[in-house]
Amino acid sequence: MTDFLFFIEVVVAGLLAGTMYSLVALGFVLIYKASSTFNFAQGAMVFFAVLAFVGFMELGLPFVAAFFVTIVLMGLVGFFTERLVLKPLMNQSEDTLLMATIGLGFVLEGLAQAAWGVEVRRLDLGIGDFPIPWIIDSTGLFISALDLTAGLVAAVLIIGLALLFKYTKMGLGLRAVADDAGAASSIGIPLGNIMLLVWTAAGIVALVAGMMWGARAGVQFALVDLALKALPVLIIGGFSSIPGAIVGGLIIGASEKVLEVYVGPFFGGGIEGWAPYVLAIFFLLRRPEGLFGEKIIRRV
């Protein structure tokens, strides 16, 4: 195999792995857009959702039923979060909300472990994490079926969300709330319902992200740490932009793989662990609002 082909393969694998980061980041963006809250609990939601899903499957529910029961459960999580955490903290500073969502993350992690235990579970989606033969035959590239599926699922989710925002009444309401929550509620848009919708949507995104990650690495606590990597993705893409979450994920995924393969060996490997954060710092120093974010203007 030529070096160039290998490089392409590394980049493609990185891009596809990056879509998994994008999926986690997407949940952050949804909630940030609607309520200007950095939902630090998104990683915990990924863990909670997929652990619940696997738990329901173990109880004997079929795949589809487990999927929908988990979505209802995530809706409940959203409902209680809105009532018990967000509402009492309305109009507080972003930092206060951020700390509260860190607390929320701990609650969700604890509850998930109390309900379903700590052991690593296998999740079989029926999609193997191995190269697809016909792609090897036609192009010589080794591309994992799971990566490709994750990419497709991400694309479907994003198109679905974009349609929801653009063409439904709920979506219009959501954009109004994102623009100016006070004004939106004064003309009668039900803030509570919108928040519930957004948190449920973020819950669904979390579940899908968790299923993709879980199929690769097993359903386990380490998912929470993996989800932390969505943070540099958001910094690169911008916190309020859905395309940003996707592009950011792709950039992080590709650059982390390229760095690991070509630079990593000089340092004994493992630079994947911090490279995304350092990349994010460079972005922060050049363009703090991210590639697609709105310019941050602060006034006294």
Binding site: L84, V85, P88, L89, Q92, T96, M99, A100, I102, G103, L104, G105, F106, V107, L108, E109, G110, L111, Q113, A114, G117, V118
Partner: peptide, 24 residues
């Protein structure tokens, strides 16, 4: 023991939220 360490996490999380709301 799993339940105990999980309960610990839940209590820390709940306390943070409660303090943020009532006594920052």
């Amino acid at each position: 023991a799993t339940i105990i360490s999980a309960a610990e996490q839940v209590v820390f999380g709940v306390l943070i939220i409660v303090f943020m709301i009532y006594e920052p």
